[in-house]
Amino acid sequence: MTTLNVRDAAGRVAGPTAAADSASTGPVLTAIARTVVALGRALLIAVPVLLVSTFITFMLGGLTEQDPASLVLGDSATPADVARMREVFGLDKPLLLRYLLWLWSALHGDLGSSWFSKIPVAQSIAERLPVSLSVAVGALLIAVVLGCVFGILAAVRQGGWLDRTVTVVTSVLATVPGFIAAIALITVFSLLVPVLPSGGWVPPSAGLWKWASFLLLPSVSLSLDAAADVARQLRTGMADTLHENYIVGAQVRGLPGWRIVLVHALRNGAGPAVAVLGMHVPRLIGGAVIVETVFALPGIGDLTKTAALGGDVPVVQGALLVTIGVVLISSALVNVLLVKLRPAARREI
């Protein structure tokens, strides 16, 4: 304390005590405000996106030549029967009106019913969404962990053997289609070294450990593409950042090396990697179709594929709507994360 108040002789600002108290709340508040603004903006952008994408989705059903009335009733139906059936399905109304009605009830949680099984679409989706989400979230976690570990190590050891290996592996992984990765993993971990199940699904209630063992291979195979991209972007971003003056600044202050890399370099170098991760989210959800087929998982991708091949339009529309919703929510979260990471980015366009 004796070293303090050097300037007090010069008669500047009054004691710092009162000011220091409010410092403990001030920055926190602005941080929350920034987050709220970013989240609000992201959601505002999502509204027209939701309208456009659902409209496209709905038009898809309208464009299809599948007439559920004749599909359901079969070839022996009379024209009068078909007309009555069309009325039941609401197909006699103009397309735009049908879209608005569909959107309105979708916003209330009603996605209609399957043309064939008559099971409410919302119910089928609710049954299958947990499967897809757990695989997608698992894949996301694996991608983040693998991508961060290898991206950061490669950046820190620039030009070393690890860096070169990471570069080669990520370039090769970028050429592997998801189904080949899945098959390769099954071949290795279920056939050659049988340690994990080659497919199927058990709910978490059957035991967390068992659930995880069924989840692992699908998640890993779905994550590889994203992990490679994250590692590559993180390596580039961090390699640039590590040459910045503020890294020297942090070193001069005597901060330990791990702290400089994980706090100072990572924060500024992670932007592109986070953005790329955001771009991968739709692929993690959409790519689940492949994984669900190869590993025989009862997920939403499997539901969509079966429904689409059978011409069950309401199911396809509902499943697409839900996936779009998940995508929009996750991209809003990514935007918020980006703003939090790089406040200086506010100045950029």
């Binding site: 939701l50 994408s53 739709p282 959800i285 991708g301 969509t304 996936t323 995508v327």
Partner: peptide, 13 residues
């Protein structure tokens, strides 16, 4: 709006 469409599922649909 197009970006929000999940690639494979939309193509399949």
């Amino acid at each position: 709006g197009l970006i929000a469409l999940p690639f494979l599922i939309f193509a399949i649909a």
